[in-house]
Simulated assay, not measured.
Amino acid sequence: MGKVSLKELFLLRTVACLSIVFLHSVDVADSWFFGGLRLFLSFGTPAFILISEIVLANAYPTHTPKGFLKKRLRYIGIPYICFVIIYSLQNTFTLAGKAEISVLATNLVKGFFLGETSAYFVAIIFQFYLLHMFFVRYVFNRFRPKWILIIAGLVNVSYLAFFNLVSPPDHPTAIYVWDTFYRMPFIGWVFYFAVAYYLGRNYVQYLSMLQKYRHYIYASVPLTGIVMLFLFMSDIIPVLSSKRFDMIFFTLSTVFMLLIVAAKLRGVPSLIVKISQCSFGIYLVHPLVLSVIDHFFILPNNMFSAFVLFLFALSGSMGIVVVFNRFSWGSYFIGRIGVGLDLKRPNNRITNEKTQPVN
């Protein structure tokens, strides 16, 4: 299959990226307004993960080519390793207060295998890669989409609802699983995977169907948002996280709405394209930028300060991504700049007379 420019995904990826950066810039949660705002912004992580499978299913709907995992290990796996190490060093020597090698080793194990860094979403994406390889070979071509979606939805919702609604046993390991680890297994994301696969595989047809039912989708966004806010404010599901079972419905509604809106645009603004291209690196590096700002500046906890932090975090992260990608080794550290509307990557690496540009 030839490459197809999924232009609507540039807007979707940008909104998801901006939501995450703004979420981490808002450090005010002492009112229902800021708590609700942070809850809605949390949709960015599942949306970002969902996008990865849409792109994958559109490019490889029935098979995966030779070297599929190797290529992704180079440009996604290596940056994941780098940032797990960076955040583990940060947690050990600047935040935890116990600068010991044994603590660093523990933080590294937790970072790599238990998802205890802000880069954990990469581990989820890699699970999607493995799921895609398995499902296109053994599942998608053997069972009807309706049953795959129903089963995936029931499993995903039930899994998250269990951890959202059932209190953990009074044991440190159980409390840790309930608080942190339950987000790591693909079971907590499998419905996103199934929906994204069918959307990516039949992108044009499903986009047309979304436009046909746009009024229902527009209505579902505030409806699912109100339900989610009610469950949060009434302490039925008090956790402020993207790993809530009600977040599934809000995320999918919002993603569908953004795709419809993007399809109506006559063109994609260059700034949106640029943020989308740098989104992977922005996602990885923006917590570091925020921590540096927090170290040198004391800002009051209000919306204006949050907006200032957001602008600095976004611009600083984009600048770092662009600068690192000017070096041949930079994309291995921070990830590659994504393709543009023309399906080409910008060639902005530093070269000399003996060095040929890398495509």
Rank of each mutant, 00 (worst) to 15 (best):
Met1Glu: 15
Lys3Leu: 15
Lys7Pro: 00
Glu8Ala: 02
Leu12Pro: 01
Leu23Asp: 07
Val28Leu: 13
Val28Ile: 14
Gly36Pro: 00
Phe40Ala: 12
Phe43His: 08
Pro46Val: 05
Leu50Tyr: 09
Glu53Lys: 03
Val55Phe: 03
Ala57Trp: 04
Ala57Pro: 00
Ala59His: 02
Pro61Asp: 12
His63Gly: 11
Pro65Phe: 00
Pro65Tyr: 00
Gly67Phe: 01
Phe68Met: 05
Phe68Asp: 06
Arg72Trp: 06
Arg74Asn: 13
Asn91Ala: 15
Ala99Tyr: 11
Val103Thr: 12
Val103Cys: 04
Val103Phe: 05
Val103Trp: 06
Phe113Pro: 01
Gly115Leu: 03
Ile125Gly: 06
Phe126Asn: 01
His132Ile: 14
Phe135Ser: 06
Arg142Gly: 06
Pro145Gln: 11
Lys146Gln: 14
Ile148Phe: 01
Val155Lys: 15
Leu160Gly: 00
Leu160Ser: 01
Asn164Glu: 05
Ser167Pro: 05
Asp170Ala: 12
Pro172Thr: 04
Tyr176Ser: 01
Trp178Ser: 08
Arg183Trp: 11
Phe186Val: 15
Gly188Gln: 03
Trp189Ala: 12
Phe193Val: 04
Val195Thr: 04
Val195Glu: 02
Tyr197Arg: 02
Leu199Arg: 15
Asn202Leu: 14
Val204Ile: 14
Gln205Leu: 15
Leu210Gln: 03
Tyr213Asp: 10
Ala219Leu: 02
Val221Glu: 01
Pro222Trp: 08
Pro222Ser: 08
Ile226Phe: 02
Ile236Ser: 07
Ser241Phe: 05
Phe250Ile: 09
Thr251Gln: 04
Leu265His: 06
Arg266Ser: 08
Pro269Arg: 12
Lys274Gln: 12
Ser276Ile: 00
Ile282Leu: 06
Ile293Cys: 13
Asp294Trp: 11
Phe296Trp: 10
Pro300Thr: 05
Phe307Leu: 14
Phe307Met: 13
Leu309Ile: 15
Phe312Pro: 02
Gly316Phe: 02
Phe327Glu: 05
Ser328Glu: 12
Trp329Phe: 15
Phe333Ala: 13
Ile337Gly: 02
Ile337Tyr: 06
Asp342Gln: 07
Pro346Ala: 11
Pro346Met: 11
Asn348Leu: 14
Asn352Met: 13
Glu353Leu: 15
Asn359Tyr: 13
